[in-house]
């Protein structure tokens, strides 16, 4: 499920020096989705989260010759995206949550948040595997916040169908995400 990014921090630093597009692309494909989820976790705004990820990679490419990655590549990117989210929240004079401040200071908080993002990523990827109608109804319910009756009306289907499809989605997701539990 998870994309493998096989390069060490030194190799990525060297790749930046050499403007290696292939490794830059691999880096984007391996981490952009997790970075998007993390940015969204901090700013609670999908469009802004997309912009923050986009601008981070633009900056990485433009300042490629000044970048030195020490420690894990993922940690470097997670901290960079969190800094950008923090700056964006401050710039917009929006509330900065305690968790974001802790994230910078506390290694344990970093790992806790990383696990949560990984779980969200798996959830997002399992959603992709649901049957199209089932996925559409579940997304309308959970991501767009529509009530079952509103979904039924919007899709011109019965309320029973909405409940049935949501229960199918929930069952599929809990089985996929928490396989060690007994149901």
């Amino acid at each position: 499920m998870k994309d493998v990014f096989p390069y060490s921090p030194a190799q990525v630093t060297e790749a930046f020096r050499n403007r290696d597009i292939q490794i830059f692309q691999d880096l984007y494909k391996a981490y952009s989705e997790e970075l998007y989820l993390l940015a969204h976790h901090w700013v609670k705004d999908s469009d802004l989260a997309k912009d923050i990820v986009h601008n981070l990679f633009v900056s990485l490419w433009e300042k490629a010759d000044q970048i030195i990655i020490e420690g894990q590549v993922k940690h470097y990117l997670f901290r960079a995206i969190s800094n950008r989210a923090l700056n964006e929240l401050k710039r917009r004079q929006r509330h900065v949550g305690e968790e974001l401040l802790q994230f910078h200071a506390d290694e344990q908080s970093f790992h806790h948040t990383s696990d949560y993002i990984l779980f969200q990523r798996e959830l997002m990827q399992h959603l992709q595997g649901l049957p199209p109608r089932c996925r559409e109804i579940f997304l309308l319910s959970r991501i767009h916040g529509l009530e079952p009756a509103e979904i039924a009306s919007q899709l011109n289907i019965s309320l029973n169908t909405v409940y049935f499809q949501i229960s199918i989605a929930l069952k599929s997701l809990r089985v996929a995400l928490l396989p060690k539990k007994n149901f």
Binding site: I21, Q22, F24, Q25, Y28, K29, S32, E33, Y36, L37, H40, H41, S46, A49, K50, V53, H54, F57, V58, W61, E62, F119, Q120, L123, M124, L127, F138, L139, R142, I143, G145, L170, L173, R174, L177, L178
Partner: peptide, 30 residues
């Protein structure tokens, strides 16, 4: 699962994101 799904953002397309990035940076992917 219900609450985690409710925290999810809108979908993210890695491919679209990459295309937008390369278009802006003027780089051509191998």
């Amino acid at each position: 699962v219900w609450e985690s799904a409710g925290q999810l953002p809108q979908e993210f397309s890695v491919q679209e994101g990459w295309e937008s990035l390369t278009a802006q940076l003027g780089i051509v992917a191998p």
